[in-house]
């Protein structure tokens, strides 16, 4: 059981690292948010799950388990608010963008 929780911990830290690399490499804010929400959320959830397996059904373990859904909602709602806010503020999308349906709706 102990080695399983350590394996989950390593997976979590690796995905957090991928998320951070994506934050630096990708071109504009919308693409950066993609890596910031997905990789970092799964990485952190994996770390919390390993904490739960290590401590079992004790106060610490249950708190780690409850933190997972809270983190999910915080990350998704945060990403939505950031992307919408930056679009309204007028931050341009990268040159590679091939289609933008939101622009028409926004001008009305």
């Amino acid at each position: 059981m102990n080695s399983f929780s350590i394996a989950l911990l390593i997976i979590g830290v690796t995905f957090d690292l991928f998320g951070c690399i994506g934050l630096i490499r990708l071109p504009d804010i919308y693409n950066r948010l993609q890596s910031a929400t997905k990789c970092v959320t799964l990485g952190t959830c994996s770390i919390l799950l390993s904490l739960f397996i290590h401590y079992g059904f004790t106060p610490v373990g249950i708190k780690a388990l409850i933190a997972i859904p809270l983190l999910f909602f915080a990350a998704t709602v945060g990403a939505h608010a950031l992307s919408r806010g930056s679009y309204i503020y007028g931050i341009k999308m990268t040159d590679k963008t091939i289609r933008d349906d939101y622009k028409k709706e926004f001008k009305k």
């Binding site: 990708l26 071109p27 504009d28 919308y30 693409n31 999308m93 990268t94 590679k96 963008t97 091939i98 289609r99 933008d100 349906d101 939101y102 622009k103 709706e105």
Partner: peptide, 8 residues
């Protein structure tokens, strides 16, 4: 390999 866009 990215090809981003906003879709309705």
């Amino acid at each position: 390999p990215i090809k981003p866009g906003i879709l309705k």
